[in-house]
């Protein structure tokens, strides 16, 4: 009875549980890498490091350059982190998909391995 319960769990709620776990892990990546925040603030200056506009054209020009650099630094760092988050998500998706595909194959794999152990 317990063996039957194990198999019914493995091909029922167990499989569902693993799928849920994979999705939770992927959503945690999004939280840990602040994906939503990064997208909302993609072009913001890096840590608000900005130059106040002074008098004269040169000062205006200097401030514009400084602020653009700050925004560029912010953009580069954020894009780098977003790409890392994306890469990790893709990797986890692939691992998760493999896991989900292999999950139902594990019990028959035990039988196959035992047979192979005897026959080869």
């Amino acid at each position: 009875m317990l063996a039957l319960a194990l198999f019914s769990w493995w091909y029922g709620s167990g499989w569902g549980y693993v799928s849920k776990k994979i999705l939770t892990t992927i959503s945690r990546i999004s939280e840990s890498f602040s994906v939503k925040l990064l997208l909302n603030s993609l072009f913001d200056p890096w840590h608000r490091i900005t130059t106040e506009t002074g008098r004269g054209l040169a000062a205006h020009f200097q401030a514009a350059i400084d602020n653009t650099i700050s925004r560029l630094v912010g953009l580069v760092v954020r894009i780098f982190v977003l790409i890392s988050a994306l890469l990790l998500t893709v990797i986890l998706l692939i691992i998760g998909a493999i896991q989900l595909i292999l999950w139902p194959l594990i019990p028959p794999a035990i039988v196959v391995c035992i047979i192979l152990g005897f026959t080869k």
Binding site: S34, L37, R48
Partner: peptide, 14 residues
């Protein structure tokens, strides 16, 4: 608990 992740304070000043 989740406190916003690594980039939480990047848009705020020091």
């Amino acid at each position: 608990q989740n406190f916003g992740g690594v980039a939480r304070d990047w848009s705020f000043g020091f």
